[in-house]
């Protein structure tokens, strides 16, 4: 899922300072599950803004609400009337949600309340870790379930590099231990009897399917709705 983290409150106070009517809008999908931007977090954020404004003697009209998914038009449509009463929507969704709102609300200010961090999973209560970079050309079939693009700090395809030591990456620190992704892959392939992959020279990756070709788009003719039918 998409993992987010609320922006520092000071930053939120600063960016919303000029607005008198604020709607703090949570999203009940990924960011609610990772405890960053659901209804509860939207309410907490609204309370903090309200309190801060009282202290500054600059009262604000503020409401917290949430919708199921800010990343789909049909859910965003539900709040079309509600937003009319506000100057700004502080979206507690990921960047996808913020931009979907902006698309649907062309005359309304939309601000992000979160820093969208990564695609990942909860490692344990209160700890989330990235494990996919959506590179557009999955190699997990070769490494049998551990992503070198994400788990290797250099995203190399022929690893591990010379900085791998005792299972840790060269950027690992005492405070932030980072496993060497290629060491993990090596151990996994060994268990599965597939370590011969480690001996192949893996060819250059086509990054055009990834982060560097403008916004990626998928068109599926088989599921498109043809107007008039």
């Amino acid at each position: 899922m998409i993992i987010g983290e609320r922006k520092p409150l000071e930053e939120i106070f600063d960016r919303t300072a000029s607005f008198k009517k604020i709607l703090v809008l949570g999203c009940e999908t990924c960011v609610a599950v990772c405890l960053a931007g659901g209804k509860k977090e939207a309410e907490e954020t609204a309370s903090s803004i309200s309190l801060h404004r009282k202290e500054e003697s600059k009262p604000v009209e503020i409401k917290a609400d949430s919708i199921q998914r800010q990343c789909e038009y049909e859910f965003v449509d539900e709040i079309a009337d509600l937003v009319k009463d506000y100057d700004v929507v502080l979206s507690m969704a990921c960047g996808v949600g913020v931009q979907t709102l902006a698309e649907k609300l062309p005359d309304k200010f939309v601000l992000p309340g979160l820093n969208t961090q990564f695609l990942g999973f909860p490692l344990e209560q209160g700890v989330w870790m990235e494990n996919c970079q959506a590179c557009g050309n999955c190699v997990l079939d070769m490494t049998y379930g551990i992503c070198p693009i994400t788990r290797c700090s250099k995203s190399i395809l022929n690893g591990p590099c010379g900085g791998s030591s005792e299972g840790l990456c060269e950027i690992s620190t005492q405070d932030n231990e980072i496993a060497c992704g290629w060491h993990l892959i090596y151990e996994r392939l060994k268990v599965l009897g597939k370590q011969e992959y480690m001996n192949e020279v893996v060819p250059l990756k086509d990054w055009s399917s990834s982060f560097h070709g403008g916004p990626r788009k998928i068109v599926r003719e088989d599921v498109k709705i043809v107007r008039g039918e």
């Binding site: 022929n158 591990p160 590099c161 010379g162 900085g163 791998s164 030591s165 005792e166 299972g167 060497c180 060491h183 090596y186 151990e187 480690m198 001996n199 192949e200 020279v201």
Partner: peptide
Amino acid sequence: ADPFEYRVDRLEKKIA
């Protein structure tokens, strides 16, 4: 560097 037992294979790969 580690894993030690892979390091020679890695040289072989670089030769390839």
